[in-house]
Amino acid sequence: MTDTVQQTKSQFVAVASIAAELSAVMEVAKEISLAAANAKAIAFRAGEKARGFQPITDFINELAKETITLVNAINEHALLLYRLTVNEYRTSTAFDKFQTATKMAEGAQYQSSLQTSTEAVEQRMRECRKQFKRHVGQLLDQLQEVMHPARAARVIAANSRIEASQAGEYLLSLQAVAESVDRAAQIIHNNVQRCRSALNVINITE
């Protein structure tokens, strides 16, 4: 097995783990959006006491939406990476086998007739590789972007705690909301970080 075939195997693993991390991020983003709706209802009931809390819930909701949109875009990109990996696997396996066959066909009358196909397959393999690298770069940028709303959410969660402290009997429920947003943002942050390191692993193995 050549390095390329081995390489595509680790790409499969990386792309699959990205997909898994992303679907977890998606779940969490949905949870945040639910928590925001919840908080809004509580803040509404708390009225004057939670006045500072209301714009915060809207903002949290925005962030959740933004995360979902970004993750959708990243997912599409990851799918493209998967397709490129399939193609690269296919062409690199063929390239390997063609080389083996050429060696085995030593002395055969038509040995050289395979050369054109071998070159074509090698060309396609390199093209996939190049495209893959380009898209990994773009995906890393997108992952960087998805960290922003998560980071902002954590800051807001901290603010929410302060606002919640003025909400009297609603203190506990609003605090719980702030905590769940904070926890969710942290999970997103960690998952995205893992995506990035999965991608970096493939980048390094080149």
Partner: peptide
């Protein structure tokens, strides 16, 4: 079997 088979066929016919 692909590589040995292809190699064997190349004794009899070019790929095209």
């Amino acid at each position: 079997l692909f590589a040995p088979m292809l190699a064997a066929v190349l004794h009899h016919a070019p790929v095209e």
